[in-house]
């Protein structure tokens, strides 16, 4: 029989519970509380849904909201498309020795920090930047292409900062897949495309979904890349929240907007899990 070490158990669990309570549960309850408080014309504070109504009344808010959601999904899919071949190459094609070195290279942008990498992209994308100067030197274009401060540059920035979080879970899923599965499918007459679709993708789905959730959450809640690379034309919902808190000092509406973003992203993740037939506990492990 195993003795139940009750004292020790509570000692070990307390920091975690304190953390959850103080830094996650209480702040979110406070956020919710604030989002429901409204100051009437008489200067009285009452409970009301007016903060949420503000979101629906001005179409710029919910247009930004929808745009943020769609772009986040788009960037997540793009991250998968761009990184899957890389993950496959690193795990299945080249040897372990090179693969760990190259994975290390992929980590470098994370070490440098988001702000610096985003400024790096500005240098590349601006009118007299690296890409435009190069194209003009080759005489492929006469005038610089406007790339910076567009949805394009914003997408690139978001993709660049989140890509790694897609690659790592996907690599670990691919790594655990035995190569003989691919050979067996090929031996049974499957084309490369069928192997990819019916064997590799289903096998790596948990990795893809967990990577996808991380990327999606990072992107939808990001502020730096949309703000710096997106410019004025590319509104992101986090910017609206920022404006509520720090430009118009309306913390209550800001709290409501923050809550809406939380609901939106949770809903999209839930739909994605349903569609891919995955369970959160499986993806999380």
């Amino acid at each position: 029989m195993m003795k139940k070490p009750r004292g020790t158990f509570y000692l070990l669990i307390t920091p975690v519970l304190l953390w959850l309570l103080a830094l996650i549960v209480i702040p979110h309850m406070d956020l919710m509380y604030r989002s429901l408080r409204f100051e009437t014309d008489d200067g009285l504070w009452v409970f009301s849904l007016n903060n949420y109504l503000a979101f629906f009344e001005d179409q710029i808010y919910w247009l930004t909201f929808v745009k943020t959601a769609l772009y986040s999904i788009f960037v997540t899919i793009l991250a998968f498309v761009v990184t899957f071949p890389v993950a496959f190459f690193l795990t299945k094609v080249i040897g372990k020795k090179y693969s760990s070195f190259m994975t290390l290279l992929l980590l470098i942008p994370i070490w440098i920090g988001e702000l610096v990498t985003v400024y790096g992209w500005m240098i590349l994308l601006r009118d007299n930047g690296v890409i435009n100067s190069f194209l003009m030197k080759l005489r492929l274009i006469d005038a610089p292409i406007e790339m910076l401060f567009t949805n394009f540059s914003m997408t690139i920035g978001l993709l660049y900062i989140s890509m790694l979080f897609m690659i790592v879970p996907m690599m670990s899923a691919l790594d655990s897949m035995d190569d003989s599965l691919i050979e067996a499918a090929s031996d049974l007459g499957a084309s490369k495309w069928t192997i990819f679709r019916q064997i590799v993708i289903p096998y790596t789905t948990p990795g893809i979904v967990s990577g996808g959730i991380i990327v999606f959450m990072l992107v939808i809640g990001d502020y730096v890349a949309p703000n710096i690379l997106g410019g004025k034309s590319s509104l992101w919902f986090t910017e609206q929240i920022y404006n509520k808190f720090l430009a118009s000092f309306n913390w209550n509406e800001g709290a409501a907007f923050g809550f809406l973003l939380l609901l939106l992203s949770s809903f999209i993740v839930w739909v994605a899990l349903k569609l891919s037939g995955q369970k959160l506990d499986k993806v999380g492990s």
């Binding site: 035995d178 050979e183 067996a184 031996d187």
Partner: peptide
Amino acid sequence: IPPEKRPVNIVFQNLALFPM
């Protein structure tokens, strides 16, 4: 002639059944 076109099939050492 690639494996998928040959009239032979193989039972792998670890069987390589498709777990999904």
